[in-house]
């Protein structure tokens, strides 16, 4: 573990009965990084976060967080972390101030520091003047930012965010990510899970989780690299799902997935994508509106990787 390593995980597994929620994963996170965990529901993202926060003990393998062995001393790691759980878990029947005072107090902040940090959190959440409002009445976007503020009261070096933008309006999501990036640039390490592919582009590095395993790990650019020049976007108008299914059976087609009214087709490496796509379409006697090569998105990567894992 080097000085700048904040999280180091080796062969970590967690079983629930016979179900392998997390299955032999290894990775490390360095200081100031925004580290994204991407995957479908049930892929093992939340379980991993809960283990790293000391909320769940691993079945096997090792995890060190801020130089503390989380298998052995989960209680020691808790004061050093900020954690924002899936449901923005503030108490709806407590006011903005009361929620912040509760969490700040539990982290052992002195009353003068608590007052100072509370003011910071209220301002960050955009709730100045609304300190006495019950949290139940706040719109979701404000709840989310207040929950973030609560997780930052004790100025943790490492912040865990579990699905921090689930259900939040796009504009509020963008603002939220601006906040995350500014936190990271001031030295806080951010570990974030999401199933929104677009927002994970904000991460420095990404893990793609599937069925408890790491399917891929790298920077967004690295992950997309393998697909550059291999994706064809086919505008087909109607029944893209059915056409995609038929295209998948065609030789040289690695995968075909519906994207709204279009299809993203991944061709095998070394083939000319446009020609190959046209050939496949001709064989199926389909007349698409347009066929063009497009830039891979993380969603393409995710789907290709996951289907690769599944096979």
């Amino acid at each position: 573990m080097t000085e700048s390593t904040v999280i180091e995980v080796e062969h970590l597994s967690r079983l629930f009965g016979k179900f392998r929620a997390v299955d032999d994963i290894s990775f490390s996170v360095t200081r100031g990084e925004i580290f994204g965990f991407l995957g479908a529901n049930g892929a093992g993202k939340t379980t991993t976060i809960r283990i790293l926060c000391g909320l769940l003990s691993p079945t096997s393998g090792k995890g060190r967080v801020l130089d503390i062995d989380i298998g052995k001393a989960p209680e020691r790691v808790k004061p050093l972390l900020g954690y924002m759980s899936q449901k923005f878990s503030l108490y709806p029947d407590l006011t903005v101030s009361e929620n912040l005072e509760l969490y700040g107090g539990l982290y052992g902040l002195s009353s003068s520091r608590l007052a100072q940090r509370r003011a910071f959190a209220v301002e960050m959440a955009g709730l100045v003047g609304q300190e006495a409002v019950l949290c139940a009445t706040l719109p979701l976007g404000f709840k989310q930012r207040l929950a973030l503020g609560a997780a930052l009261l004790h100025e943790p070096k490492l912040l865990f965010l579990d699905e921090p933008t689930a259900g939040v309006a796009p504009r509020a999501r963008r603002e939220f990510w601006t906040l995350i990036r500014s936190l990271a640039s001031s030295g806080t390490t951010v570990f974030v899970t999401s199933h929104y592919m677009d927002e994970v582009e904000n991460c420095d590095r990404i893990v793609l989780m599937s069925r408890g395993r790491i399917a891929a790990l790298g920077t967004p650019t690295e992950l997309k690299q393998g697909l550059v020049g291999r994706i064809v976007r086919i505008e087909c108008g109607q029944e893209p799902a059915r056409l995609a299914r038929r295209l998948r059976a065609h030789e040289g087609v690695v995968d075909a997935q519906p994207f709204g009214s279009a299809i993203h087709l991944i061709v095998a490496p070394g083939l000319d994508p446009i020609n190959h796509a046209r050939k496949a379409l001709a064989a199926l006697e389909e007349q698409p509106r347009s066929v063009e090569v497009c830039q891979p998105t993380l969603e393409d990567v995710f789907i290709s990787v996951v289907s690769g894992v599944a096979r």
Binding site: R50, C53, G54, L55, E75, K78, P79, L81, Y83, S85, Q86, K87, S89, L90, Y91, P92, Y103, L106, Y107, G108
Partner: peptide, 14 residues
């Protein structure tokens, strides 16, 4: 149910 237990347990409270 509300998930607040999860949040509480992530703090130093025993």
């Amino acid at each position: 149910e509300r998930g607040t237990m999860e949040q509480l347990l992530s703090t130093p409270v025993r």
